Amino acid sequence: MYQSIETFSKRWIFKREDPKVDAEDFAQIHLLTESAAEQIWRDYISVDQLHPDHFTIQDWPKKEAAQVIEGKLSWEKAWDSSESNLPDGFLAHFETWGDDTKVYFCCHSGLVFEVTWGVFKRTWKAFLFLDNGPVLVGRKKKQAAQFHSSGWANLLYRVF
């Protein structure tokens, strides 16, 4: 189910001094094998598209019903700042998630990370070096977010 994060070509994002990912948190960031990533992608993101760039209105992240009213948030200012916390709008959207909630940071059908919400909240800046449309979803949760390289994110609800 997991492969060594050392096989990930961009593992440097988790080993930088800024943003710093503590060794304890790093040990809890799991890179899924390609087959496990594909299964999570199919189950949580899309059965038809392999990458967020190719989402259509048929994919739930693009559906109007999935969009949170006033759910477009800037993440880039907080990412560039010395503040380590996720912006308040994200925390409010995911307020029902416990720190032990299993979450998937889904970059594309072959690249998915599994981590707990607590670890993601502490390490989000490292993950957002991968900002080309990844979707964050929680296991058995309806809240989600899609991050864009423009520095904005869409808060979403999973709908089918």
Rank of each mutant, 00 (worst) to 15 (best):
Y104L: 07
G71T: 03
V115K: 02
L128K: 06
D53I: 03
S74Y: 11
P87D: 04
P52V: 05
S81F: 12
F55K: 04
T101E: 14
S74P: 14
L128S: 08
I69Q: 14
E95M: 06
P52T: 07
A126D: 10
K62Y: 15
W124S: 05
W124A: 04
L50Q: 11
V103P: 02
S109V: 00
S109R: 01
G118N: 11
S82M: 11
K121P: 15
S74N: 15
E70Y: 12
K77M: 10
V115A: 07
S81V: 11
F105M: 03
T116W: 07
S109Q: 07
Q49M: 11
E95F: 10
G118D: 13
E70H: 11
W75N: 03
E76L: 11
H93I: 03
Q49Y: 09
V112Q: 02
D99M: 01
Q67G: 07
F120P: 01
K62G: 11
S82H: 15
K102Y: 09
P87T: 02
T56H: 01
S82L: 12
T101A: 14
F129Y: 15
V68R: 03
A65Q: 11
A126L: 05
F127T: 10
V103N: 00
D88C: 01
L111E: 15
H54G: 09
S74I: 05
K121Q: 15
F127D: 12
D100R: 02
G71I: 01
V112C: 11
K102W: 08
D59N: 13
S82A: 15
P52D: 08
S82P: 13
A78E: 09
K63V: 02
A66E: 09
L86K: 00
